[in-house]
Write a protein that binds this DNA or RNA. Structure first.
Lengths: 285, 285
DNA sequence: CGCTGTGATACCCGGCAGGTATCGTCAAAG
DNA sequence: CTTTGACGATACCTGCCGGGTATCACAGCG
């Protein structure tokens, strides 16, 4: 199978509309229809149900959408890593580390400082991403390593090392009655009538609910300060609290683990050095 | 990048010879040369050093060989799983389980029996492989799950669950002096002058050494019975010993773990059932 | 009935993948 | 030093196929 056909298929499977998919691909609709039909013939499997008024994925189509995305990611990763290895920037002398913006800031500081001191250290490019999925960045080669947080990120398919664990806090408007408490439980914050939990997009769409829609951390901080919402965050979020915020420990929230993760079987020497530095950081506390 | 170009590249990178690679690909040499050059131009990276008398991989070429194989595996897996999902055999009602021939036989028996009793169980096709790499089978979709053995197999990149651990034994000719011992150490068996350790192929080639070259378990068993070699095996290998063999426990050999492994993020319901059955097997002992 | 939105079909064209023939170059043989 | 063989690169041709435009078939809707 050809990556071209696979990209076409993914586009159609995502749009569920040949016309829009063709537009997205920058081509006309007829050749796209033909390419999909040819792909189905070559695989010997029907991928779409062409009903009147639109298309739907078959079971085989769902499998191909899932597996195909992984294959395309792997192909993109191969291209990116090859270009980086042969580019003008000396071979593998540059690592891209994906971190969630404002997450584990202090740990990141220490990691960068410790790694910079390693003789022969590669240059580290920090890829700050808001709510973008770090898993995808690792899979398609845009990043070489990522600081990820369980239980929010899945570490499946990557190698990883746990660096720290921490408790969680509720971040409230300082003037809210609950802010006076010594500690809270998940049940306490889950159902505060005047402070609905903020919603942030997962996979591009916002889950339904009463809370405000959040796009970045600053927005969230401001909404909390305004007394419109509350947030549950790892302990290290204290680093960016405002004076109008109150941080109250959650006694029964799950521990948040910070891990450094990288593509399984990675063979980059520079990456190995970064990981070693990270794990040594952990041992020292 | 196109899978076609990638397959061409991998062929040349493996053969390090345009003519042989072209032959393997069933095409003439000139278009292959051109395709590689075009790939290099498209990536903006030099992949081969064309010296006089042959070609060699550049650093970028090594990266692409490694990453490209993974990408091709992922593509093949997408094709295979899609075809299986849409084939005549009802969707995902069939699972392929890769096991090392004669390894963990008793565990496999129990697993198959237990899973067959699960209501709605899928059909299990057992893919017995000699010394073929199970990692590859999982990666390119020829298998859905595998029973793998640490520390021999790497579980990197897969999800896995440990099922059992066991010690290791030395298998000797029954009439050999060492066969009378109660127990042995790795040092004892590592350097027996008249019983050199057998060599089996890793990645298609035999490592150098004095021992006989082995292709399958029967051959090994016979060579031991003939007093030509000895072998170190997990405890469960006792299942296939001959009367002319002696099994002596190794006190200081690393524990061998048997794991069931599957592609990370697998979403097959049938596979989930198999894994659940396997882990329950473990809990019951 | 006509209009609209959608995917499928018909047909054409240009580019590119693949073939053959040949060259350039280097190394080993004599 | 010359010859010869091995190997990759180049030149050039050809047929296929990917992509375009125009149009059809059909279903829902007013």
């Amino acid at each position: 199978m050809d990556t071209r056909e696979l990209r076409y298929f993914v586009a159609v499977a995502e749009e569920l509309h040949f016309g829009r998919a063709a537009e997205r691909l920058g081509m006309a609709q007829p050749p796209l229809s033909r390419a999909i039909k040819q792909l189905e013939r070559r695989l010997g499997v029907s991928l779409f149900e062409r009903n009147r008024r639109g298309v739907a994925l078959t079971g085989a189509g769902e499998v191909l959408l899932y597996e195909g995305r992984a294959a395309l990611d792997a192909t993109d990763a191969a291209v990116r890593r090859t270009q980086r290895a042969g580019g003008v920037d000396a071979p593998s002398s540059r690592l891209v580390l994906a971190v969630k913006a404002a997450g584990s800031h202090e740990l990141l500081q220490r990691l960068l400082a410790a790694y910079a001191a390693v003789p022969g250290a590669a240059e580290i490019e920090v890829l700050l991403c808001g709510f973008c999925d770090q898993e995808g960045l690792l899979r398609d080669g845009r990043a070489d390593a990522a600081l990820m947080h369980t239980p929010f990120n899945s570490l499946a398919g990557f190698d990883s090392e746990e660096l720290t664990t921490e408790g969680q806090i509720a971040i409230l408007p300082a003037r809210h009655p609950l802010a006076a408490r010594e500690s809270l439980t998940v049940a306490d914050v889950g159902d505060v009538p005047d402070l609905p939990l903020a919603r942030w997009p997962s996979y591009g769409v916002y889950p339904p609910g009463p809370g405000p829609e959040i796009r970045d951390q600053t927005q969230l901080a401001q909404l909390i300060a305004l007394g419109r919402t509350l947030a549950v965050m790892p302990d290290s979020a204290r680093a960016w609290l405002w004076s109008e915020h109150a941080a109250i420990p959650l006694t029964d929230a799950p521990q948040v683990g910070t891990h450094i993760a990288w593509p399984a079987h990675s063979r980059s020497l520079a990456l190995a050095g970064l990981i070693r530095t990270a794990t040594e950081l952990r041992r020292r506390g």
